[in-house]
Design a protein around this nucleic acid. Structure first.
Lengths: 348, 348
DNA sequence: CTGAAAGCGCTTACAG
DNA sequence: CTGAAAGCGCTTACAG
């Protein structure tokens, strides 16, 4: 470690070095190293490859990107990479796009408009080939204007945008229908006989929170069930928030709680159990996402399955096609209830 | 979306465009935009800034990186970004290094040597300023040779390497002492009176698995407790693996199980409970990591706390200093038991 | 304080 | 099939 500085003078091996060793021009080396379709004599190719091998030549992607205007990178915005939901999604994206030689910048906005904008600008500066909005948009007018300007400029230069969340940005999109999926959960509970259902909402400044919340209210009213403010609390999409929200709601005499993500459902389950309520005998809990962890919840969690990995994966497939100049159709993915043990019919 | 192609001809706005509008040379524009210390007249600076603003100029980082040989990017290798452990670590890294203007490439090796090598080469090609090994090394001789060659070359060109895991690579390092932390867990259980302790190991081809496993054996023997093969099973660091392993072990009459990560401890807890064992009355379970989810486990999990976020964060601080040309000392972080409800003294 | 020029490491018409 | 040359968008001695 100590000699790092002294060695730092040793130079990079460039096309030129390879060219000199192979006794050909840099143009020729470039052609063989970049797998250009331009013809190169077999014998020449061999010499070049040997020289490259010998010198441990690695083409500089920065230089290549600068001239081709293709960086082979994509920038993805998530809310929080430590949230397993986003980890799963990014994994799906990466697993699929990797083979095409694309590398991923990943950035957590922390749901902070300024921070998200900063990252978006950085992505632009690094000339990413695609922008991926894995994070739902923030409900902030100034932010909205800036994002739209930026995306427009980005696309006008040939950039692709891919939307994997509830977002106002228009681009290629993997749709997950939060509204109908929320309704599915409400119907499921209503069919079981629940009449008073509590709801734990996500952060109010997120589009996805608003959609799930509205869908909840609509579904509940459509079924003729009670909807009032005492039945809903905000849980910030976090474990802690879920705990707080559950305790806030639980006094209202409801027989079930629908949390708008699993993290909150997990927190709610823990808090409810610790407060002496039995799940599902006293109260049912339903989550949203179906994280791998939902199965090892305090009570195995019945939840709405969001095909998170596939959202990433299908997104990558869209991306590949769009990057290749095609105009692929958007894809639509749906949720479904996965029944575990946190739900039962209300006691008579 | 439909007009993306037709617009793609519109050109990027470059230094030159700004220079023309401001009626100065590109050198001058460069100086003001890059906050160079080279003097620029106030009046000139104002004109440049105005022109840049008007054109929506974003300096091209690729070009800048090519000439400065500083890309302001860092490449981080994790095993699996959907594993909350790595998500947490990357978050710590990002939160801290972001302010310095560095962007993160993140890549999941999937514990596949070929894939990890592919990413490492890509990072080199993109001229990242630093390589971060968040993932423990793989126990594969050919891989080891290649990684060492690659890292040596990388460092010889002035690159920084940062190790945040059990790894053979030498570089700046945040040490987490897996051995002593494992011993702490064993001692904790032994002090409670446990004599037969089961162990769920991680994938055998990972250095960190081997270290924790060896430390377990040593600690157990030091305490004069039983160690034999029937007490250990491999659980691949996953929930599913933890389930399988727990069921495999549980017949051996042990009174406690130590899982070498929380994911496996969670799976084990679920499987044990479902098989009719009570935790901790019949059997105690101890995890390793203290994921945020450990608290919302089937039984709130007693576990060894690994300061994951801080490993990332402290790593970023080291990185910042190393990148600035200093030679910061490595940092050492320690584990501790966090007591929840999955452990009790064995029944008499 | 300002600018002309060389150069970072590539790719790609163009000419032969 | 091969190469000389221009150029991608920047930075930075060097000269004035």
């Amino acid at each position: 470690m100590s000699n790092r500085r002294t060695l730092s003078a040793r130079e990079r091996v460039s096309l030129r070095a390879v060219a000199e060793l192979a006794e050909v021009s840099v143009a020729t080396v470039s052609r063989v190293m970049s797998r250009s379709s331009h013809p190169v004599a077999d014998e020449t190719r061999k010499r070049v490859l040997a020289a490259a091998e010998r010198l441990g030549f690695q083409p500089n992607q920065l230089a290549r990107a600068l001239v081709t205007a293709r960086s082979q990178t994509v920038g993805v915005i998530v809310h929080d990479i430590s949230d397993p939901y986003f980890g799963e999604l990014v994994k799906g994206l990466e697993d699929e796009i990797r083979a095409d030689g694309y590398r991923l910048f990943v950035a957590s906005s922390d749901r902070n408009p300024a921070r998200e904008l900063e990252y978006l600008r950085a992505f632009e500066a690094y000339q990413v080939d695609a922008l991926v909005f894995a994070a739902s948009s923030l409900e902030d007018p100034a932010y909205r204007d800036e994002v739209e300007t930026l995306v427009e400029r980005f696309e006008s230069r040939g950039g692709i945008t891919l939307v994997l969340s509830e977002h106002f940005v228009e681009g290629h999109k993997v749709h997950f229908d939060n509204r109908s999926s929320t309704a599915v959960a409400v119907d499921y509970l209503a069919d079981l006989g629940h009449r008073r259902i509590g709801f734990i909402a996500g952060p109010p400044d997120l589009t996805v929170s608003r959609h799930r919340h509205q869908a909840f209210q609509e579904a509940v009213e459509k079924r003729g069930l009670t909807y009032d403010d005492s039945l809903v609390a905000e849980g910030s999409f976090s474990i802690e928030g879920g705990k707080r929200a559950a305790l806030e709601i639980v006094s209202g005499g409801e027989t079930a709680i629908l949390a708008s993500n699993d993290l909150m459902a997990l927190g709610a389950s823990r808090a409810l159990l610790d407060a002496g309520h039995r799940i599902p005998q006293d109260i049912s809990v339903v989550g949203f996402d179906d994280l791998p962890l939902a199965e090892v919840a305090p009570v195995p969690l019945t939840t709405v399955r969001v095909p998170t990995y596939d959202i990433g994966r299908e997104g990558a497939i869209l991306l590949r096609r769009a990057l290749a100049g095609e105009d692929p159709d958007d894809v639509h993915l749906v949720g479904e209830i996965v029944e575990r043990r946190s739900v039962a019919a209300p006691r008579a």
